[in-house]
Amino acid sequence: MLAGVAVEALHNVNQTRYSPRAMQPQPSLTDLISDVANRRDREAFALLFDHFAPRLKSYFFKLGVSDQAAEDFVQEVMLTVWRKAELFDSAQAGVSTWIFTIARNKRIDAIRRERRPEIDPEDPAIKGDEDPAPDDVVHASQMGDRVRSAVAELPAAQAELVRMSYFEDKSHTVIAEELGLPLGTVKSRIRLAVQRLRGLVGETI
């Protein structure tokens, strides 16, 4: 259940649209974000916090920061979610994907102290027209369980490399050094993993 801490902290919020007792279908994460964007809805925000904060804490914890620092980073990520909710575009990415990118950028900025170079999708100078079919990307984000089981079915050595790249801040060159593997071996394992994920979940990944 999403409720828990959120309901407690919300004792002075009058709306109860998301109360379990209302027996309404549970709002989707996308609904919650748009309520935050459109109405500055704190109850929706608290539910998002309940869902994402423990996972975000896990994400930062895996990067080796202290318990306190992990909590502080979670607060900052969720503050960014509050501030930028109206920039979220459900046609471009799923909510989990969007929040993952905010957490990733926080890690690069605050833990690694680097700038994150990115494209500006609005840049008129941008070239090429094969941007992802939006449905494709959203679909991928909604297939979370299938994607995770696809990763679980990867050979252990490949899954480990994916995990290190996403969650331990180790690029494939660093992984090769740490594991004492030839760079070519790491490269081909990652390529195989990406190909297998494509094969397992179709073109949505």
């Binding site: 994400y59 996403y166 969650f167």
Partner: peptide
């Protein structure tokens, strides 16, 4: 990035 979002959803939940 969508793969990252899915993997993050699957992380164990740390108590806040």
């Amino acid at each position: 990035e969508a793969l990252g979002g899915s993997l993050m959803e699957g992380l164990p939940r740390e108590r806040m």
